[in-house]
Design a protein around this nucleic acid. Structure first.
Length: 275
DNA sequence: TTTTTTTCCTGACAGC
DNA sequence: TGCTGTCAGGAAAAAA
């Protein structure tokens, strides 16, 4: 499940490999992949467009072309591959872009990923698909103060807050668990009970963990890989997520798995206090 | 308005 | 073997 670090890894890899290349032909085999228009309009518009600039907003990948902004959300299992030859097995490949001397292929087993195409704009935050996307987790405007102001009157649990992209963008299920473990907070704690000091901790660890994961090239759990098959190594550093029935690295108690906001959630009940 | 639930998808896996 | 049911999950839509 790509979160900000994985998206950044994919983006960097693609930038190194396809920046300056021009789309000669575009094919889309799964119509619902394209949110902004019919497939034929989408494919026709891309012909002759060159990849100019690469950017990330939360978990969204942004490609600035000559005349358009192409936005991609990988959701759970979306992946890009750069291939020398046209792909043989198209079973889970839903889009192929012919870039002249290579093919950029989009694969997504569960078909949750989406692509958006808009006329090019300087103000990326004005794009329709990003209207509910808040400040990126690494944005300097994201501080404990900011988080506290956003949540002090909300009833939602703190994990749901961290997953809410309109408050802080880029955090997903895996890192939410890790951030709350490091902050010593039970994910089920109500937002309005979270102190200013706790908010400082949450933001501090959120930035630290996300930046650490970016350096390591993103976490890999289940099927996630970045383009070109580059896989991250950060999973070795995960402390609670996916560690059901294992010992807490801090206190030795058993880590439990439960559901919070419909999401699989890992907690050390000894270290993480419910507020 | 805010919060919760449902929906979208397929493959892996458990149980019979 | 082959079937059925459950689970995983980001975000939008629908319901509460």
């Amino acid at each position: 499940m790509p979160e900000a670090p994985e998206v950044q890894t994919v983006l960097s890899t693609l930038e190194r490999n396809i920046k300056g290349l021009t789309i000669e032909k575009a094919e889309v085999f799964y119509p619902k992949l394209i949110e902004t228009s019919d497939v034929s309009i989408f494919c026709d518009a891309l012909i002759g467009q060159t990849f100019q600039r690469f950017y990330r907003i939360g978990k969204y990948l942004g490609f600035e072309l000559d005349d358009y902004d192409l936005i991609v959300h990988l959701r759970m299992e979306g992946k890009f591959y750069i291939m020398r030859d046209y792909p043989e097995n198209l079973k889970h490949i839903h889009a192929v872009f012919n870039l002249g001397d290579c093919y950029l292929c989009y694969e997504d087993t569960r078909k949750f990923g989406r692509m958006y195409l808009y006329p090019k704009t300087e103000d990326k935050s004005s794009l329709a698909c990003l209207k509910n996307v808040g400040l990126d987790v690494l944005d300097e405007k994201v501080t404990g103060e900011y988080l506290y102001h956003q949540i002090h009157s909300k009833k939602m649990n703190i994990k749901a807050i961290l997953l809410d992209q309109s408050i802080i963008a880029g955090i997903g299920n895996i890192y939410a668990d890790e951030i709350l473990f490091r902050s010593k907070l039970d994910p089920r704690s109500r937002a309005y009970r979270i102190s200013k000091k706790d908010c400082d901790n949450i933001v501090y660890y959120a930035k630290k963990i996300i930046q650490g994961a970016m350096k390591a090239g993103g976490t890999t759990i289940r099927s996630y890989t970045s383009s070109l098959g580059v896989t991250g190594r950060f999973q070795l550093q995960l402390r609670v997520h996916g560690k059901e029935d294992q010992m807490c690295p801090e206190c030795g108690n058993t880590i439990i798995k439960t559901k919070v906001s419909q999401r699989g959630t890992y907690i050390c009940r000894n270290c993480q206090k419910r507020k």
